[in-house]
Amino acid sequence: MRLRGRRGSRNIENRRRQGGGRGGKAAPIGGVGLILVLAIGYSAEEERLTEFPLQILATTEQVWAQIFPRQVGKNFTPPTSVLNADVTQSPCGGASGATGPFYCSADEKAYLKTDFFVTLSRQLEAKGDFPATYVIAHEVPHHVQNQLRILGQVHLAHQQSSQTDANALTERLELQADCHSGVWARSLEELLEPSDIEEALNVARMIGDDQLQKRAGRVPQPLTHGISKQRASWFAKGFSRQTISTSATHLARVGCNV
């Protein structure tokens, strides 16, 4: 992406030099899926990738601040993003390399482990700018869903559903976030390099439930984020439609209806 000279987000808690523990009982939303991350430590490569996420976060703030009044009829309040290098506390539990990035609705913060972006490039064959870009662009829409009360509706439905149905609802929630990240990308089309969208689709395919389980060497697990084909497809639909869904995933009829 063409981000040289662009400001970074100021809605940040930098915990990269701090230790931490485990927090409360709320459920984290929107980790990219089942990922086993190697501990690669604090490095110059991670240092370089810290500034870039702040610039991406700033673009999400810009885009959603424009979309909300136009499509939702209300103002958008951006999330705070927590940058951590090790385990840190959240009301949704410990944020670590094993969990990957996630959104915690209890404190309305996105937890971004910075060296995860290095790992994503190295281990998942996700090259270019879009490994970090895609993950951040996916987490912020979970805050969008929270502001639209979609997360609350889905959490309530979880309590009234079987485990199979609850997993299906979670999957649709994640695919809607993929679609909304596509809407974000289209809104920044003037900043995109020619290869950016293909890189984004490649990342989506690499972090599908089927690919991650295959890499982890595990027997098939319940699908909670969508398989590779679905994740790439819904990002592409969001990029094409440019319309968000403003209701719960299982009720939506327009926009990113999954």
Rank of each mutant, 00 (worst) to 15 (best):
Q123W: 03
V144H: 01
P79W: 04
T133S: 05
W184Q: 11
C92S: 14
N146M: 04
R149V: 02
H155T: 06
L156A: 15
L191S: 11
G93K: 04
E108N: 03
C104D: 04
E189G: 14
T60Y: 12
Q66M: 10
E125I: 00
E139S: 07
P78Q: 06
A185K: 09
I136R: 03
H155S: 15
Q153M: 14
C104S: 00
E47W: 06
I136K: 04
Q160E: 14
Y111V: 01
L173I: 04
G93I: 09
S96V: 13
W64N: 10
P91V: 07
L49Y: 05
T88K: 02
T77N: 08
E174G: 11
I67C: 00
A98C: 02
S121M: 11
E171C: 11
G73F: 02
E51A: 13
Q147G: 06
L54N: 10
T114N: 12
P131A: 08
S90F: 03
K109A: 01
A85R: 10
T59R: 13
N75H: 07
A65C: 12
I150F: 13
Q55T: 11
P141T: 05
P101V: 04
R172I: 03
Q71V: 04
A126C: 13
F130W: 12
R172L: 07
A166L: 02
A168M: 12
P78S: 10
K113G: 07
V87S: 13
F117C: 05
E108T: 01
V63F: 09
T80Q: 11
A168V: 03
Y111L: 05
P141G: 07
G182E: 11
T80N: 12
R122F: 07
A85V: 03
H155E: 13
R186G: 06
W64L: 07
E139W: 05
F68Y: 10
E171Q: 15
K127A: 13
E125T: 03
L54Y: 10
N167K: 08
K74M: 08
I150L: 09
P69I: 05
T170N: 15
F68E: 05
Q71T: 03
S90L: 09
L124M: 13
